[in-house]
């Protein structure tokens, strides 16, 4: 192994350490595993759709802190975002908060607006259509921690709105 072959990996680790601090190697590895930003999508509200948001947005870095955040897709089978979906959150104290998804299907909630006491019950609404999550969230504000893009024995698959594809109103989206 040469110095030149090691350098790119070291550079990524150094960048992560500078951006997010050096206190938690597990967290740093998790962030590195998320990979780089997608081409043409700068860091911001539309970035990293489908990834576990609160890994970085946890109040321990310069990224805005989120209490709950995630991405809603039209169906489970394709990475098509569902814009304009209302995400209803009801916590153990029966407090309700509603957030809306943006053009990437992303939604995010800041702790100043709503810091839920778990368990947290989730429902999605698009017009008169409503779908409720069967089980409550118990502790992790990132939807994608349990809803990876592939269904497996440890993932319920994408957060999705419909069982079959339907057109979504994406007016105003780039």
């Amino acid at each position: 192994m040469t110095v030149s072959s090691v350098w790119p990996g070291l550079a990524v680790l150094l960048a992560v350490a500078l951006a997010f601090g050096c206190d938690d190697p597990l967290r740093e590895r998790t962030i590195v595993a998320l990979g780089p930003e997608a081409a043409g999508v700068p860091p911001g509200p539309l970035h990293r759709a489908g990834q576990p948001c609160v890994v970085c947005h946890d109040g321990r870095s310069s990224a805005r802190e989120f209490s709950v955040a995630g991405t809603v897709f039209v169906t489970a089978d394709a990475p098509d975002p569902a814009p304009g979906v209302v995400v209803e959150l009801v916590d153990a104290d029966k407090r309700t908060f509603r957030a809306a998804t943006n053009c990437a299907g992303n939604f995010f909630v800041e702790p100043a607006d709503f810091a839920p006491r778990y368990p947290l019950f989730v429902a999605l609404e698009a017009g008169r259509y409503r779908i409720e999550m069967d089980t409550p969230v118990q502790r992790d504000g990132s939807c994608a921690s349990c809803h990876d893009d592939r269904t497996s024995r440890s993932s319920a698959g994408r957060v999705y709105l419909f069982g079959t594809p339907r057109p979504m109103d994406a007016s105003g989206c780039p």
């Binding site: 069967d134 089980t135 409550p136 969230v137 118990q138 502790r139 992790d140 921690s145 349990c146 024995r153 440890s154 993932s155 319920a156």
Partner: peptide, 23 residues
């Protein structure tokens, strides 16, 4: 649930039809 004791690395790992599966 998948974000609690339904995680593979969690002490007291629990399997359930709505959480982590064994097979």
């Amino acid at each position: 649930s998948l974000d609690c004791h339904g995680q593979s690395g969690r002490p007291l790992r629990l399997f359930h039809n709505d959480g982590l599966r064994l097979a």
